[in-house]
Simulated scan of single mutants.
Amino acid sequence: MASSSSCVGTLLPNHTQLFSQTKPSTKRRVRVSRAVRAESMTNVIEKLGIKIERNPPESKLTQLGVRQWPKWGCPPSKFPWTYEAKETCYLLEGKVKVTPSGANESVEIAAGDLVVFPKGMSCTWDVSLGVDKHYNFE
Rank of each mutant, 00 (worst) to 15 (best):
M1P: 03
A2E: 15
S5M: 09
S6G: 09
S6F: 06
C7P: 00
F19N: 06
T22P: 07
K23F: 02
P24M: 00
T26Q: 03
K27D: 00
R29S: 01
V30M: 04
R31N: 08
A35Q: 12
R37F: 11
A38F: 05
I45P: 00
K47V: 07
G49A: 09
K51G: 00
E53R: 09
N55Y: 11
T62N: 12
L64C: 01
G73L: 11
G73Y: 08
S77K: 04
K78I: 15
K78L: 08
F79K: 14
Y83A: 12
E87A: 02
L92V: 15
L92W: 05
E93S: 13
G94Y: 03
G94T: 02
V96W: 04
K97H: 12
P100D: 07
N104C: 07
E105N: 06
E105G: 03
S106R: 03
E108Y: 03
I109G: 02
A111N: 02
G112Q: 02
D113E: 11
P118Y: 05
G120A: 08
G120Y: 03
M121G: 06
T124K: 01
W125E: 11
D126H: 09
D126C: 09
V127D: 10
L129F: 01
G130W: 01
G130H: 05
K133S: 09
F137I: 04
